[in-house]
């Protein structure tokens, strides 16, 4: 599935890298612990988190995640957006809490 095909269902908005809507999304990982994501998130996953600081970009980039989705209406720091633009990691936000966002993504990816 492509990133753009998940955006409507996730009620998500691009905060950067709008021009990368064709990135592949094959799975999802939900966690607010960076070392947990590092060890357990699969490549080409959307990472759903409440963390908003720039280090989330390094994690996503190092293990090849397709995008970061910041849930429950939290907003990324401006430095996070700047870093993400530099590293080509799309950052999206949604008002949905993590559970709902993950549930919707699960249904989409299981189809």
């Amino acid at each position: 599935m492509k990133l753009k095909e998940t955006v409507n269902e996730l009620e998500a908005e691009f905060k950067c890298c709008k021009l990368l809507p064709d990135r592949d999304v094959s799975w999802c990982y939900c966690s607010d612990l960076l070392s947990d994501v590092m060890a357990n998130a699969k490549k080409d996953s959307i990472w759903i988190t409440l963390q908003t600081h720039p280090n989330i970009v390094a994690v996503a980039s190092l293990i090849g995640l397709s995008a970061i989705l910041i849930s429950r209406g939290a907003e990324p720091d401006p430095e996070t957006i700047a870093k993400a633009a530099q590293e080509n990691i799309p950052i999206l936000t949604t008002k949905l809490p993590t559970f709902e966002a993950a549930g919707r993504l699960y249904s989409l990816l299981k189809k």
Binding site: L34, M38, N55, I56
Partner: peptide, 15 residues
């Protein structure tokens, strides 16, 4: 609060 400190880093490295 930043999401560090899970105590997983060294075990991850070893793995």
């Amino acid at each position: 609060e930043m999401g560090f400190g899970a105590g997983m880093g060294l075990p991850n490295i070893r793995n």
